[in-house]
Amino acid sequence: MARAHRVAAVATVVVVAYLLTLYNFLSVPLVDAQIAEQILAVLPWWLLVSFGSYSLWSIGKGLFTLRETPEAYQELLKEITEAKNDLRTKGVTVD
């Protein structure tokens, strides 16, 4: 079973449970019926906005923490020169 099938199976269960609750076939325990109704109506939008925020935050943090490594570049340039000089003495054609 591919990951898509597992995700689809879980999503189906969640959506069915949500719809049953929304149309009062199931009741929400421990919460007042009126309040539960208000929460259920906006729950999908709340999840969508939360996911969007999480995505933006995640990518933004990734961009911010992606290090610049100029020192690695400088070191590499030196090594390239060293390598070329050494290889020339050994008879390898280097441009």
Binding site: S55, I59, G62, L63, L66, R67, Y73
Partner: peptide, 20 residues
């Protein structure tokens, strides 16, 4: 720590977005 050299903002954004 790892990192990159020689990437502009767009390249970083695409790379981060793709990995996310």
């Amino acid at each position: 720590p790892g990192g990159v050299h020689g990437w502009d903002f767009k390249r970083k954004l695409v790379s981060r977005g793709a990995n996310f």
